[in-house]
Design a protein around this nucleic acid. Structure first.
Length: 272
DNA sequence: ATTCTTGTTGCATC
DNA sequence: AGATGCAACAAGAA
């Protein structure tokens, strides 16, 4: 689930903890690879007593800021999600099977990080300034800094790689994941296997416009009521024998860029 | 039992 | 040197 818009949705799930203090930290399995490269014990040492003062999402990355110069980086991997729960009346909280980090906050709420597939990542940083891995992230695809020029230059550098593989590269298409990439290519009427260097200038412009439209519209729909209209390709792409919501043709499926890819053979003609 | 998976990384190869 | 492709990572779901 977690691509750009869902990541920002997850981030907001911890909003009830804003301006609250960390009272206690549960780390049910500190050895799990979520914490690779970190020392979970120091996380507990430095975070308890601090106040959650802000959060931000960029692409699929999130950063939570705590008082006193403490930062928590969260990546949801394949199946991660953030959750907020009220403590039960007796002041108890039962973590779910795949909860790996739970912050009990003042005011009686719990902020939980759950990850059924353990591909996510928690990072901890202690300094007045945010961590370098965060400040050096590229702009998310839904922002104005994701310019046509930036995208066109990147396509030129990856000219022999198929469009689908290139759309998954976070160093340019920051926040795009597997279903968004398929959705974008389908709406731009571009076959996923077209080499990135084979696009005409007007096709590059169309692709850029479509990336922005899909990412911005997904952000709006998810922050609203999560109701994607049936005209969206990704609602149909996993059904066996799914058909194109635009022309009704049977969708094609295959592996591209190492990932399952769905496209409409009629709307996205093969070439290159 | 087998195969699939909405992500990233490290390594081999081109 | 830089670009590209792919296996590997874990564990649940179908």
């Amino acid at each position: 689930m977690p691509e750009l818009a869902e990541v920002d949705h997850s981030r907001r799930q911890w909003d009830p903890g804003l301006d609250r203090r960390v009272m206690e930290i549960h780390l049910p399995r500190p050895e799990v690879r979520i914490f690779r490269g970190e020392d979970p014990a120091s996380l507990r040492r430095y975070l308890v007593g601090k106040k959650l003062v802000g959060s931000e999402a960029r692409g699929k990355q999130m950063l939570f800021q705590f008082s006193g110069g403490a930062w928590l980086g969260v990546h949801l991997g394949m199946r991660g999600e953030l959750r907020h729960e009220r403590m039960a009346r007796g002041g108890t909280f039962l973590p779910r099977k795949h909860d790996y980090l739970c912050l009990r906050m003042s005011g009686g709420s719990v902020l939980a990080f759950e990850d059924k597939r353990v591909f996510g990542r928690i990072r901890f940083h202690r300094d007045q300034a945010p961590p370098v891995w965060w400040t050096s992230l590229p702009p998310s695809v839904h922002t104005d800094e994701f310019t046509l020029r930036l995208m066109a230059d990147f396509l030129a550098r990856r000219s022999r790689a198929p469009l689908k593989a290139v759309l998954l590269m976070q160093e340019c298409f920051h926040g795009v994941g597997n279903w968004m990439a398929d959705e974008i290519l389908w709406r731009a009427r571009l076959h996923p296997a077209i080499p990135s260097g084979a696009l005409a200038p007007e096709e590059i412009a169309t692709l850029h416009r479509t990336v922005r439209w899909v990412s911005r519209t997904a952000m709006r729909i998810i922050s609203d009521d999560w109701s994607y209209p049936p005209s969206w390709l990704f609602l149909h792409r996993w059904e066996p024998g799914g058909s194109c919501p635009r022309c009704g043709a049977d969708l094609d499926r295959g592996a591209l860029g190492g990932r399952t890819t769905a496209w409409c053979p009629a709307c996205q003609p093969c070439r290159g």
